[in-house]
Amino acid sequence: MKLRFEDNSIRLRLSEAEVTRFAETGRVSVVVPLGPTERESLTYALERSETEEFRITHGAGAITIKVPAALATKWTSTDQNGLSATLMMAQRQPLKVLVEKDLECRH
């Protein structure tokens, strides 16, 4: 899974295997070591949620994007390539969230 930050946006791109795992388990995550100990790492995850809105949680070295279950099911079971939302953060700053399938081209 690829993570990208740019200005006021966050983007996740999932491989075909990761999309399948997300569909089956409701969660996919990656741990990036940022130092010599396990505590010095960043975990980023995509998680299916029972809420009706996109959410982001963060803290203690982790960022989780939570996607409403109905949207997650539709996304993983169809040819739909992406999900997006704009969340209002502190000081009324918008944060664009994009989750995409990063599938190989098939000819």
Rank of each mutant, 00 (worst) to 15 (best):
D79T: 06
A69E: 05
F5C: 06
R106C: 07
R92E: 10
V19H: 07
A85V: 04
D102T: 03
K66F: 03
I56R: 00
R4W: 07
H107Q: 15
S15E: 15
L71P: 02
V32F: 02
S77E: 13
W75N: 00
H58M: 05
L12V: 12
Q80N: 11
L46A: 00
L34H: 07
H107E: 14
K66A: 11
R55S: 10
R13L: 03
T51S: 12
E18M: 01
M1T: 06
A69M: 07
R21Y: 08
L3E: 06
Q91T: 11
R55C: 02
A17I: 09
A62M: 13
D7M: 09
N81Y: 05
V28I: 10
E104V: 12
L103F: 11
R13S: 09
E47H: 11
E24W: 05
A69G: 01
T73E: 13
S15A: 12
T78Q: 01
L34D: 05
E38C: 06
M89S: 14
T20A: 09
E47L: 00
S49D: 04
G82F: 14
S9H: 00
T64N: 00
T76K: 02
S77A: 15
V30P: 06
L14S: 03
A17K: 14
L34P: 13
T64E: 10
A17F: 11
T64L: 06
E24G: 06
E6P: 06
V30H: 10
S49N: 02
G61Q: 00
E6N: 14
K96P: 03
T37N: 05
S15R: 11
F22D: 01
I56P: 03
A70R: 05
H107A: 15
V19I: 03
D7Q: 07
R4I: 12
S49W: 04
T37P: 00
L3M: 14
A45L: 13
M1D: 01
A23S: 04
L34Y: 01
D102E: 13
E52G: 10
I63M: 10
V97G: 04
S9Q: 10
Q93A: 09
R39Q: 05
T57S: 13
A85F: 07
D79A: 13
A72S: 07
E40A: 10
T25F: 08
P94C: 02
W75Y: 08
D7V: 12
I56G: 01
T51H: 09
L103K: 02
L87R: 11
R106E: 15
R39F: 10
L83C: 12
A72H: 04
F54K: 03
R13G: 06
A62I: 08
N8T: 09
R21P: 04
A62C: 01
N81M: 08
A85K: 07
Q80K: 14
G82D: 10
T43H: 02
E50P: 07
R48K: 14
R11T: 15
L14G: 07
T86Q: 11
K96T: 08
F22Y: 07
